[in-house]
Design a protein around this nucleic acid. Structure first.
Lengths: 174, 174
DNA sequence: TCGTTTGTTCAAGAAAAAATGAATGATTTA
DNA sequence: TAAATCATTCATTTTTTCTTGAACAAACGA
């Protein structure tokens, strides 16, 4: 099976991205920035961006070629994107390679991000906080001790608050 | 004026942070992680964390000493935190140095973050998108062109959506 | 006015994060 | 079963980001 691009696609106007059309470069660029806001690596944005504009699902080696990216980066990037549910594996008859396609329902993308990134960190913060709360009891019974106990209590209120807000965030996206 | 800590504070249990009590180390640690989630440097979390547990406003040089941090980091960190409205400058009679205290209203912290970080990036994304939209008109009148035009339209809907959601986010925190 | 204190900036160094690519294992098919 | 294809892992290299500290500027006070 031939996975090379149609001739029209090779007429790139961006010398740094041979094989990518202007629109493709633009969309990839857009997702690279978007993904950085979320604290993820450039490669994640590149992969998702290319899949987002591609009518057909693409296999690993095509992603590597068109993005000039190593196999390792592409493999790890796809692994993460699948964990988020941002990329789905599609079976292509007559081809041994896995093909990947972009999930474009924003609700699901957000859900994946919350599940994989936000929730674990929130839990970790809660654990950390429980540790500190122990120390709070050892604080002296003076003005400073009182103040710091108050601050610890405030931290716990923030933490509880976050737990409540996270699900609401998802419902904003309906 | 003497800004050294009371003797009790020097009985630190953490050898890597002389001059910081257990509770202080814990709270700082908490904010260092929190701040990393938001994509900011460790030093930002350290400064905010120490101010958060400190009953008195602290000047630059005290922050440097207690956090074992360079003057440059502390200065830049405070600059950023002030821009966010996460730290306020407090005048201390009889002391030439600026003193800093932590803003602890979560609503204001969130507003600062949105204003300084989210809004500019959102605007930048919109500009980027306007650029790509131009290219959309040059796409061929075939299946692939139609598909990609559809994807560009979807991106614009996402962008508009984000604009609507950002203010709602703030109202969640009331 | 001149020396001192305080705070900022920025080039250079250090640390952290991401990308690479060779080695590995798994799966297919000849 | 052996060769070929495909994907993953991980030690190393590269890139990016953060921190440092010295130079500078500004504000004060003697």
């Amino acid at each position: 099976m031939n996975y090379m691009l149609p001739a029209t696609m090779d007429q790139s106007h961006d010398p740094t991205h041979p094989g990518l059309s202007g629109v493709e470069v633009g969309v990839i660029d857009f997702f690279v920035s978007a993904v950085k806001v979320l604290g993820m690596a450039k490669s994640i944005g590149e992969i998702y961006g290319l899949l987002f504009v591609s009518p057909q699902p693409l296999p690993l080696d095509v992603l590597c070629q068109r993005l000039s990216m190593s196999k390792g980066s592409a493999s790890q990037g796809l692994k993460l994107l699948r964990a988020f549910g941002a990329v789905k594996t599609v079976y292509q008859p007559g081809d041994r390679r896995d093909h990947f396609t972009a999930e474009i329902e924003i609700k699901r993308l957000a859900a994946g991000f919350m599940r994989e990134e936000l929730q674990p960190r929130l839990t970790q913060g809660e654990e950390r906080l429980a540790q500190i709360a122990q120390l709070g009891h050892t604080l002296p019974a003076n003005a400073e001790g009182d103040f710091q106990r108050g601050r610890l209590a405030k931290l716990e209120r923030w933490s509880d608050r976050s737990r409540e807000i996270l699900p609401l965030l998802g419902s904003l996206l309906d």
